[in-house]
């Protein structure tokens, strides 16, 4: 990408929803004419979407039970040791 580091920074701030209004205006204008930056943004958005698409796994069924079985026993007579 030939564009300035500052423009790349703006893209990341935009992705973080953390961009100043003025910077967003500059970025939008720039994207209209710069195919490199537009593609860069699209590739970043695609990577994020791919990573997010993996986000649905659950703990094994007996998970809670396994933990409860491994907890140290409460020592009621000597006071709690933690």
């Amino acid at each position: 990408m030939k564009c300035s580091e500052q423009m790349k920074e703006r893209i990341h701030h935009y992705l973080d929803n953390d961009i100043k209004q003025e910077d967003e205006r500059i970025l939008r204008e720039h994207l209209q004419s710069c195919t490199d930056c537009t593609q860069h943004l699209h590739e970043l958005e695609k990577s994020i979407a791919l990573v997010q698409s993996t986000s649905h796994i659950e703990a094994p069924v007996d998970f809670t039970q396994a933990i409860m079985g491994r907890l140290p026993k409460e020592k009621k007579t000597v006071g709690v040791n933690r």
Binding site: I57, E58, A59, F63, T64, M68, L71, K76
Partner: peptide, 24 residues
């Protein structure tokens, strides 16, 4: 206060999130 069973509910609430974090 020493009620171990109350912890099971905490595990149930967060287990998927924590497991997922560890898995990824």
């Amino acid at each position: 206060k020493g009620d171990q069973n109350a912890f099971a509910e905490i595990v149930d609430i967060y287990k998927d999130k924590i497991y997922q974090l560890c898995y990824r």
